[in-house]
Amino acid sequence: MNPRERIRRFIVDTFFVESFSDEESFLRSGIIDSLGMLDLVAFLESEFGIKIYDEELVPQNLDSLANVAAFAERKRLSVTAA
């Protein structure tokens, strides 16, 4: 399963959403609230072995599946490069 599908599965299982598009804003549609964001961040850290800093907790990184997947990929590459 590719990273995007793993994240999608986590969101479906945790937040009980049936379907959402890759580009859909979690915050505008109300799929994930701020507490949920904390769960999502904890999942990304444990699943991909990355460390996410507080200043990276911004909508540009976390507000849609596409953004989250891209952000996780970027972080993972930076970890492997280091």
């Binding site: 979690f26 915050l27 505008r28 109300g30 994930i32 609230d33 701020s34 964001m37 507080d54 907790l57 911004v58 909508p59 976390l62 507000d63």
Partner: peptide, 8 residues
Amino acid sequence: MSLSLRAN
């Protein structure tokens, strides 16, 4: 986290 990272 950013104050903008919340459900509208």
